[in-house]
């Protein structure tokens, strides 16, 4: 989750979540950044409304999935 925390820290600080910023924050936390994970995170977060998503509950639903018995 380090990468996600780093992204949210940047977001909370009003900074852009890009590769360079993530790298800086991770390094400051003593993490050797993994390029693939940084790139993947930046790509995955594209189009995600972070403020909105944060407010949503994290728990998966117990949508009563009636599996054919």
């Amino acid at each position: 989750m380090e990468y996600v925390y780093a992204a949210l820290l940047l977001h909370a600080a009003g900074k852009e979540i890009n590769e360079e910023n993530l790298r800086k924050v991770l390094e400051a936390a003593g993490v050797t950044p993994d390029e693939a994970r940084i790139k993947a995170l930046v790509a995955a977060l594209e189009g995600v409304n972070i403020d909105e998503v944060i407010q949503k509950a994290a728990m998966p639903v117990a949508a009563p999935v009636a599996v054919a018995a």
Partner: peptide, 23 residues
């Protein structure tokens, strides 16, 4: 709150980590 927020974002983004893989 911070953890759940981070987890939500990762799950919504489909960013797999050991905390989010199940979700």
């Amino acid at each position: 709150k911070a953890f759940l927020g981070a987890k939500n974002v990762a799950v919504e983004a489909g960013y797999v980590t050991k905390e989010t893989v199940e979700d």
